[in-house]
Nucleic acid binder design. Structure first.
Lengths: 241, 241
DNA sequence: ACCTGAACACCGTTCAAGT
DNA sequence: ACCTGAACACCGTTCAAGT
């Protein structure tokens, strides 16, 4: 069958009269599994996601999942597609833009929203091999890219320029948001312990670092993101000419 | 003991009279394990690296590794440190720069060299949680950051500006090089098969994409990297004032 | 001092069997 | 039609035992 998984058909019509809490009586389906996987990773982290635990989470033995999902790797691909679809919807919900600058801003913020909402999934979006070699994570869904190119076209971008913008945009988002999502991942207790161990490292032997620890700790991802976005937009202005 | 692993003491003095091919008679040590792990991932990919296989690769049972390495996760941290040390050496070998622009170029190229040389390890460098939250992958070694800040200081950068440059630089390198390393990873046969499956997707239903497949496939990471680097340097020029 | 065997508690995955 | 039990070939990790 469809060996590539992913939320293609959004057949979301059956909200049976079954209580949510009672027993998971209605049969499994791919959508339900993918949604459960997304939630599971959001809560417990990727490393805790096993077929067996996901099955348990759905009230089923692991083996039952294989009717709907070819395997763990494809499950993860499906999770990524799931999150990308979320992006696509966010993106098309937020009313029309009146300039290409606004359009890029809106797209950038949409991607950032996803990264902040799913900090433990974003690394997957960023690093899984995309379905075609010319796709650039995190902007890796054909549907999204198509719509993006269309958008730029409508603002009068020539095709070659649009491709260049797509690339710069992806690079910018990947760098900024992977870093930010990294800081947002909830750390497990043991990881925290490890950090505490390391944090007051022999930092005394790094005088330049010691001199600026305060500003290093500052964070401020938000303003940095906006500033970098402004820069990107200016670069695009140059490309366009 | 030292619970954090990593190539701290480079005790590289014993090149015994033992033939390399004969039998691995001299006892294991952490350095040898880490080097073997780097090589193993370079050749076989991260997913193939198991304690048992790495042991076999070293002519030893997996359990023997635990004398020198706390566990698999810390092994991977050690691999990352190993590669970062490679960077540090590259960086200090390439003679002095005569301007901060040249200095940044040299550092950028050094990191890119690492990414291209170890495309299957670079994602680890890029995504493993760093040892302090304010460190930014891929520029994640204290030693490297110290030396970088010192370098900028010597060119007259104020501390706050240096920190801002460090951040922009890391973001830029992360985005650019993670994408490039992604395209360089040798794909396993099964992955290739999957790609082939997907590649001639129903691309017919994406007219904007179809119109530019040629330029999308173009690649050209090298020139893109250089261009983005130039842009970054210009941004730094502004920050400096 | 350094490594191994055996064991434990897990994995992903297949497939015949149950309902 | 949908799920499970049992099994297979692996994992990481611990620890008593071998040399």
């Amino acid at each position: 069958m469809d060996d590539r998984m992913g939320p293609a058909g959004t057949e979301d019509v059956d909200a049976d009269a079954e209580a949510t809490t009672a027993g998971p009586r209605r049969p499994l389906d791919q959508m339900r599994i993918l949604r459960a996987a997304v939630e599971f990773i959001d809560v417990n982290g990727l490393s805790k996601l096993t077929m067996r635990r996901l099955g348990a989470h759905l009230g089923v033995e692991a083996m039952a999942l294989y009717r709907y999902v070819p395997g763990r790797e494809q499950l993860l691909d499906g999770v990524v597609e799931m999150v990308m679809d979320e992006l696509y919807e966010t993106t098309n919900a937020g009313g029309l833009s009146t300039s290409w600058q606004e359009y890029l801003q809106m797209q950038a913020h949409a991607v950032r929203t996803i990264a902040v909402k799913h900090p433990r999934i974003f690394p997957l979006v960023a690093t899984r091999p995309p379905s075609a070699p010319w796709l650039r994570p995190p902007l890796r869904s054909l549907r999204w890219v198509e719509s993006f190119l269309q958008g730029l076209h409508d603002y009068g971008f020539r095709p070659k320029v649009s491709v260049a913008v797509y690339r710069s945009f992806a690079t910018f988002l990947l760098g900024s948001l992977l870093l930010e999502s990294g800081t947002l991942e909830d750390l497990t207790i043991t990881e925290k312990v490890n950090l505490a161990f390391i944090e007051d490292d022999d930092l005394s032997s790094y005088p330049m670092i010691s001199a600026v620890t305060e500003e290093l700790k500052d964070g401020g991802f938000e303003v940095e993101f906006e500033a970098a976005l402004e820069d990107l937009i200016e670069r695009v202005t140059v490309m366009r000419s």
